[in-house]
Amino acid sequence: MLEARALRKTFGRTTALDGVSLEIGEGEIVAITGPSGSGKSTALHCLAGVIRPESGEVRLDGRRVDTLGEDARTRLRRENFGIVFQFGQLVPELSAVENVALPLLFNRHGRQESSRAARSWLERLDVAGCADLRPGELSGGQLQRVAVARALAVGPRVIFADEPTGALDSLAGEQVMDALVGTARESRTALVVVTHDNRVAAYADREIVLRDGAVAGTSTAGASTAGASVAGPSAADGEVTA
């Protein structure tokens, strides 16, 4: 469904991506791991169409994404992708329910309809009680779940998560990953998680390891979990094919 071929991207003299190729299947959960500065976030930004690679190509359902103009890529992201970051993705002035409703409103849904849908997503992610609170009044784990709800609210085909548990303690991180992976599997949404945490990577069907901007190896979970309800940390014991 989503495919990248020979991606290359530099920032000044630093090569962030050096010929990265990878594929994401429908409903698949993929972790991109690697040490700091290995190009994980840049790869995610290229896949999500946030930035354009200098060479190589990104295709969604066979259609080139990287050659699209800014407006077309923006529309594509809004209609097909959901994005979760480590910090500060919620608008601090909006309540949780308004934050989740915002992408729906931008997709031209009515205010009441958007609010209803947002509340139901918050309920599914077990943060319905925080619906009317502002981000400053939420804990780190609640913030991330609201962010996950916002990413899922538009019914995306792929969710991109950049270090979604990086700012959380292990328990809150586990709860967020359970919620993210569980909901992604239920709705057959593909999930691409950038992380350097092995426990997070263990949720994935497949792990792609980046080093110095290139793919250094791929590991697959022992049994394919695509379509299963929730993948747990036990899926970590996968076969490594470097």
């Binding site: 923006t74 992201r77 809004r78 992708f81 994005i83 970051f85 993705q89």
Partner: peptide, 9 residues
Amino acid sequence: VLAASGVPA
């Protein structure tokens, strides 16, 4: 983040 999520500039 909103722009990355598809909100036009």
